[in-house]
Design a protein around this nucleic acid. Structure first.
Length: 788
DNA sequence: ATAGGGTTAG
């Protein structure tokens, strides 16, 4: 024990001025008026030590001292909250010596075993974060059989606060009589660590009840996103006639919101009204705002806000979210400006909403404004703003935010690092992403998924597959990532193989899985598999889902089963512009050009906004019917809709004109926009030149094509064809030789079919199918059957 | 024991 400096050189006499005497050297230079009444008891106590009778010599006296000391300590703790602005309030500035002195005295007097003294010493040392002294005091207590239930409860919560759940657990199981307080502490700690199973086990074994205990379970389930599990606890609480309080109510409402159980929520609110629970609680009102918002009743949410007598930042932020949820980001911004005080959550909400709505640039701008406003970004904010950088592929911005996160110590947070991995991958920096991933001390499935998805986004399926095989635990997102990754990289067969593996692993496919699988089916023209997926969708009861319907209708159209495609389309209860576009396109590509055009007109009449893909489909339809006038009309309509034509649209228009024989017009259009076009437009013109035997334009087109792309085999073939069609056999032959000289070969076209899960490809000349001899024999037999 | 915001798949 250290010697305690309790006496100052010149002990002040008790007099009115002395009440204002400085209590420690650090405060001596401070202005005499003290802003807080908190220091007064400490001064009084110091005076008592300085001038009063010697310290207590009996347990009773000592109890008075130690209790005084404990209450002083509570004051110190309250003041230490303001100790950053006022250093003299820091707990070390005078109280600790008092405690040490009291402890020494108690030790000398053999009073450490007094229950009250022991527990006050314990709390005192805990307040000064002197863990070793605290633990010694606890051991003294136990040895002297002076440990009360409170002592144990306190120590359990001390260990929990220090994050030492193992010690807390050991202590808890060693408790002679477990109190409901310790049960509550343990359950809460376990829930916060995500050990839901352990928490539930304790809950089921606990013979005692209290509001806090039940509430801790409810909030624990909510924290772990197991909203539905919270309801039985609430029900049990009511059957045990434990009255819910305000905190319970808040947690239960949150559970209802999370589970989407709004009827139940209204029942709970009714109950709360009956119990008079939410009269003047700001917190309950705040949670009501969010409840009504999630119910889709923005007006009611607003009313709750308006009716509140006192509002805080949370109320205002919830209101901001009401506006944002209605899509009124401008209104949300106005709320932010009108708020009496903003914090990082208010800014973060607005930023997240802009990011979600796709206004990523504005999200980044708001982020800078937030920093300028003096708010420190938190985990959520980093996540959304990094996500914005990912969509913008803004590597510089993303790196800067990475630096900010590093500085704030948030870079190893799993939410932030998942976003970082995603951001670096979207910016084509897989190495950095991998580095972020490697630097993580602990990884969760989301990080793994992010990196896998990042590699597949960059077309690196080998790496993606390697990670997928290595990861310790997979969820359905992991499977979806692989399946859609293969579908995106046009490896449709692999996508289907992963789908089979997913089913075998016992994961239930969801909308996302099935839409990728349908995309694969559509591209493989695998009608059989597509029908199976359709059946699966009906079985899962999600056939009315707009994504499912669109993907199904598209799959049938691409597989050539237009009847089924139409049936799905017309039975859909809800359609969006993508649904309509897919159908228009399906009809166009299958040669139902008139029907495609009339469906497009229906679409416009129904007020569905066409997009660039819709127009591409309709131009395609026109080109196949030779409807030049119509095509020009739609081409102009498109621009009137504010959709700038892209190279594919020009290609299509050139194709329309060229097919109809308007070769000079086609060439003129091409020359006008040539720089933005890809080579296919020139190929298309060249091809038409061979049909219409136009040698002059054809040669110009071929020249242009050659300039743009030296290795384009199609160009040589087309040119050669054109010469052939004009009867210029010599030129045709020379072109072929030229092509071979450039060591180019025409890519072989092929067709394929699926048989018992295996794909068989058929080429026009090379690489004969291994069974081609047999196949042709059968074919001959069939032909014979048919003709006789 | 507590209200407001967040990451990966289409």
């Amino acid at each position: 024990m250290r010697a305690v400096r309790t006496r100052r050189p010149r002990p002040p006499r008790p007099s009115p001025e002395l009440a204002k005497a400085p209590i420690s050297p650090t405060t001596r230079s401070k202005p005499e008026e003290d802003p807080s009444p908190l220091t007064l008891p400490i001064k009084a106590f110091k005076l008592r030590l300085a001038n009063g009778p010697p310290l207590a010599s009996t347990a009773k006296d000592f109890k008075t001292y130690s209790e005084t000391c404990a209450s002083l300590l509570r004051l110190c703790r309250a003041m230490s909250a303001t100790s950053t602005t006022m250093p003299s309030y820091a707990p070390s500035s005078g109280c600790l010596p008092l405690v040490l002195s009291l402890h020494a005295h108690a030790f000398r007097s053999g009073l450490t075993a007094d229950r009250s003294v022991a527990s006050n010493l314990l709390t005192a040392y805990a307040a000064f974060t002197r863990a070793a002294d605290r633990d010694q005091a606890f051991r003294d207590c136990v040895a002297a059989d002076a440990a009360s239930s409170f002592t144990y409860d306190f120590m359990v919560s001390e260990h929990v606060k220090a994050g030492d759940i193992a010690s807390a657990r050991r202590l808890f199981y060693g408790m002679p009589e477990k109190s409901v307080v310790s049960y509550t502490t343990m359950v809460d700690a376990l829930m916060k660590r995500g050990s839901v199973r352990d928490a539930v086990e304790l809950y089921e074994r606990c013979p005692l009840h209290s509001v806090a205990f039940f509430t801790a379970m409810i909030s624990g389930f909510v924290r772990n996103e197991l909203h539905k599990d919270a309801f039985p606890v609430f029900r049990k609480m009511l059957t045990c006639s434990v009255r819910p309080n305000v905190v319970t109510l808040i947690c239960v409402i949150k559970a209802c919101v999370g589970a989407g159980e709004f009827d139940l929520a209204m029942g709970v609110v009714g109950l709360a009204v009956k119990c008079n629970l939410f009269e003047k609680s700001i917190e309950v009102h705040n949670s009501l705002i969010t409840l009504y918002l999630r119910m889709g009743d923005a007006a009611a949410a607003h009313r709750v806000f308006d009716d509140m007598e006192v509002r805080d930042v949370v109320s205002w932020t919830a209101l901001l979210d009401v506006y944002a949820d209605l899509g009124d980001l401008y209104g949300a911004r106005r709320v932010l400006d009108a708020m009496p005080a903003r914090n990082e959550v208010s800014w973060g909400t607005l930023i997240a909403r802009h990011e979600q709505k796709g206004d990523t640039a504005e999200a980044l701008k708001l982020y800078s404004q937030m920093l300028a406003d003096g708010c420190r970004p938190n985990i959520s904010c980093f996540s959304s703003v990094l996500s914005a950088c990912a969509t913008l592929q803004d590597l510089r911005g993303g790196t800067r935010i990475h630096a900010n996160a590093l500085k704030m110590g948030s870079s190893t947070n799993l939410f932030v690092s998942s976003s970082l991995i995603d951001m670096y991958c979207k910016c084509k920096q897989c190495t950095y992403a991998q580095r972020v991933f490697n630097s993580l001390p602990e990884k969760n499935t989301v990080c793994w998924n992010s990196l896998i998805s990042g590699y597949s986004w960059n077309g690196k399926m080998v790496e993606a597959e390697g990670l997928f095989n290595k990861m310790p635990a997979r969820n359905s997102v992991s499977w979806n990532t692989m399946i859609s990754g293969y579908a995106e990289n046009r490896r449709f067969g692999d996508a289907l193989n992963y789908f089979y593996a997913m089913l075998a692993s016992g994961h239930i496919p969801g909308e996302i899985t099935l839409s990728s699988v349908l995309l694969a089916c559509a591209n493989l023209c695998s009608l059989e598999m597509g029908r199976m997926v359709h059946a699966e969708i009906v079985k899962l009861g999600i056939e009315d889902n707009i994504f499912m319907g669109t993907a199904l209708s598209d799959m049938y159209a691409k597989s050539g089963d237009l009847d089924s495609s139409r049936r799905v389309f017309y039975q859909m209860p809800e359609k969006n512009n993508i649904t309509w576009t897919a159908m228009v396109q399906g009809l166009a590509e299958n040669g139902f050009a008139e029907e495609s055009i009339s469906l497009f007109e229906d679409m416009i009449e129904n007020g569905i906004a066409p997009n660039e893909h819709t127009f591409l489909a309709i131009l395609f339809a026109c080109s196949h019917c030779g409807l030049v006038e119509q095509a020009i009309h739609y081409f102009e309509t498109m621009q009137a809709h504010g959709i700038p034509p892209k190279s594919k649209h020009y290609t299509c228009m050139v194709d329309v004109l060229a097919r109809a024989g308007c070769l000079p017009e086609a060439e003129e259009l091409l020359m006008k926009v040539s720089s933005e076009l890809d080579t296919s437009s020139w190929s298309s013109l060249l091809s038409a030149c061979s049909t219409y035997r136009n040698k002059e334009i054809g040669e110009r087109a071929a020249k242009k094509l050659h300039e743009l792309e030296k290795d384009n085999t199609a160009g040589y073939v087309l040119l050669s064809n054109m010469y052939a069609s004009c009867g210029k056999w010599k030129d045709a032959a020379e072109t072929r030789i030229l092509m071979q000289g450039a060591s180019l070969k025409k890519d072989a076209g092929c067709s394929w079919l699926q048989l018992r899960g295996q794909y068989h490809a058929f080429f026009s000349w090379k690489e004969k199918h291994p069974l081609s001899l047999e196949i042709y024999e059968i074919l001959d037999l069939l032909m014979l059957e048919l003709t006789t």
